[in-house]
Design a protein around this nucleic acid. Structure first.
Lengths: 382, 382
DNA sequence: GCCCTTGCCGAAACCGGTTTCGGAAGTGAG
DNA sequence: CTCACTTCCGAAACCGGTTTCGGCAAGGGC
């Protein structure tokens, strides 16, 4: 690779005309040679390729775009209204996408929207202006208006997640349902018989999948399904906290809780503190997402992590394939999440329900008294 | 606004030729009318504008680009290697940028890089391919190779932050130095005389600014500068923890600590727990950044917040101006951070402070807080 | 009444590519 | 030795815009 921007204040772009002139060929010939047309002699193709390399020729994407109709750009519109959620993953996600895209000399165009309607309008605008050739749709909903739009306008897209009506959809997803079922199985194996569930907002497709996975896990373990142990619609930490408190205050409270999202688990940690329950001691927790904070909670949270970077990368590759004509039905992948066992789902049988407790983060510290700091919520390091 | 994608499977784009044919004008005339050339009759301009509106004409950005040399896109390359840091702000930042951009019908192109060299190479590639017209450079360093490249290649850019050699640079920044000085003043006013400092990594320009602000604050308060109370080079929570522990283990430990980043403060919270010090009781803390977790810590962290969304928005506007020819020297803005007083910098009277007896202050006075926000303001920086 | 502006628009070149079309060589069969 | 058939390339059209250039018609000064 040549040192970037090495010479002079304004090294002029070398165009296909320069190349053609240098080679004594017609520019059309050069273009065909570069693009692998069959009616170019092998010797010529080589000569052209070499000269292009030597002169540092880079086709101007937008000049190509106007004839080919390809902007060579992948679109991603983020919802900035729901400011929670994919935040922690965003950098990794973007990195996965943009890296895969740039391997093929494509780029990533991102836009933001404030709500669902704005999202659709933004997609529409980008399509109109032909700024992108296709979209990655994160956070799919059960009924997703974005999909309707893109279908109507016949522009390629790939879902990160699944949706209610799969027709014409390509997707990549993590099997949250298997993770939830696995979590239940793991807890049941430890002897838990009352296992609660903290679920996500029903607008989102993954919420149903994960709840169903939880139920399937119960059934597989031969445990009864008690609707009282289920709280759903959680989207933020505070929401998780109230829902969890709800569960813990039950006369017949669960001894273990499965969380569909780490945000809910964060809330659960707070709720446990307030309810005087000690996670990893008299309450087992398994969650899902793998946010970085999970590792530094006390006790560290056992959770299923998803490799967001890999997801972004794969999504970009699939979208590229879709744009190039692959049928959506052939582009559907579901991969498992990976369980990271940590302390939260282990019950120490020997411990006294008191103060002393193995503290992996800061050994030998006296824990603050929860009652004393009543007003401000005691908080593990989130 | 027309309902998005309303009709048919493939409503064809309306081009400038369609418009011209419909109007019985030459396409060149239509183009000039749309772009406000002075040699078009007002009546004609109106007629064209109306027809364009009615037919839903949207110029194809890349077609314009090839002649005008404007891709109508802003570039942002993120460093995915240093996975920490601006993560929590990223969505807001992107939202600010992309919203300002789309107001002018521009878009945002984002790429990622793994390290500094990759960053420069990525910039170079985007410039070569003319994918973007300019860049926003986040996380500026004292000596920033990205700036060198962009200067050499004469492509417009705007810094988010300042840098060592300001020549030819436009920037937007938050006055971290004033914030740090203000933090010291606030603590000194409470009677603290030994105030420690946890600083960022010296590669980054803001680290020097904030440390200098801390020092200026000391001087303004008439406090001595004790190098032993300063720890720098912090970039992650664990790093913050060891640095803080270092400070707290000092024979003559500080009674208050100013953190240049919330991540360091997070580490400090852990360190305090391990060292048996209680923040808000026998240790006062003021930090900087305003990450969401700060509000839910125990006690809640008093910190200076920066409005990342507003920063993104302003940066985009400034970059646009820069691209349109404004001189970089005229595009330099520094705005103050906003102090959010919470519990961590207040010392409750019944505690026994090490060296100083802070004024007893009831935990509920926000009016005084508001005053202190803009209290002392040393200005050797600008 | 004539000439010189000025206002306004059409025509065509242009931007940097891609794609179509046709023709000049070379090749093999008859 | 023809002739049809490939092989390979040049020329030109094309994509959807922007910009330059020149000319026609109206208007004003003399």
């Amino acid at each position: 690779m040549t040192p970037p921007g090495e010479n002079g204040p304004r090294r002029a772009r070398v165009t296909i005309n320069d190349l053609a002139a240098e080679l004594g060929l017609a520019k059309g010939t050069v273009s065909r040679a570069l693009n692998g047309y069959p009616d170019i002699a092998e010797a010529t193709r080589l000569r052209v390729a070499k000269a292009a390399e030597r002169m540092g020729y880079r086709p101007l994407a937008q000049a190509q775009a106007i004839r080919t109709g390809r902007a060579r750009s992948l679109g991603l519109v983020l919802n900035a209204g729901r400011s929670d959620a994919h935040k922690p993953f965003l950098t990794d996600f973007l990195d996965g996408i943009s890296r895969a895209a740039s391997e093929e000399n494509w780029t990533l165009t991102v836009a933001t929207a404030l709500d669902e309607a704005d999202e659709v309008a933004t997609l529409d605008r980008l399509v109109d202006e032909h700024k992108v050739d296709g979209f990655i749709l994160p956070r799919t909903k059960l009924h997703d208006p974005r999909i309707g739009l893109l279908r109507r306008r016949a522009v390629p897209f790939v879902l990160y997640g699944r949706t209610g009506d799969p027709e014409g959809c390509a997707w990549f997803d993590i099997s949250g349902e298997d993770a939830m079922a696995g979590a239940v199985a793991r807890l049941a194996k430890q002897g838990h018989r009352r296992i609660g569930f903290l679920g996500g907002h029903p607008d989102f497709n993954f919420s149903h999948l994960r709840r169903d996975g939880y139920l399937a896990g119960l059934e597989a373990a031969g445990l009864p399904h008690d609707p009282a142990l289920i709280r759903e619609g959680i989207f933020t930490v505070p929401e998780g906290e109230v829902a969890a408190l709800d569960l813990l205050d039950l006369p017949d409270a669960p001894s273990a809780i499965v969380c569909a999202l780490d945000l809910a688990a964060l809330g659960l940690y707070r709720a446990a503190l307030r309810a005087g329950r000690q996670i990893g001691r008299d309450l087992a927790v398994i969650s899902y997402d793998g946010i970085p904070e999970a590792a530094t909670l006390d006790p560290p949270l056992t959770t299923y992590v998803v490799d967001t970077r890999a997801a972004g990368r794969r999504l970009a590759q699939m979208l590229l394939a879709r744009i190039r004509g692959a049928a959506p039905e052939t582009l559907r992948e579901i991969v498992p999440a990976r369980l990271i066992p940590r302390g939260s789902d282990r019950i120490w049988s020997d411990a006294r329900p008191d103060r002393a407790r193995p503290d992996p983060v800061s050994p030998g510290t006296t824990r603050q008294d929860a009652q004393e700091t009543r007003a401000s919520k005691p908080q593990p390091f989130a």
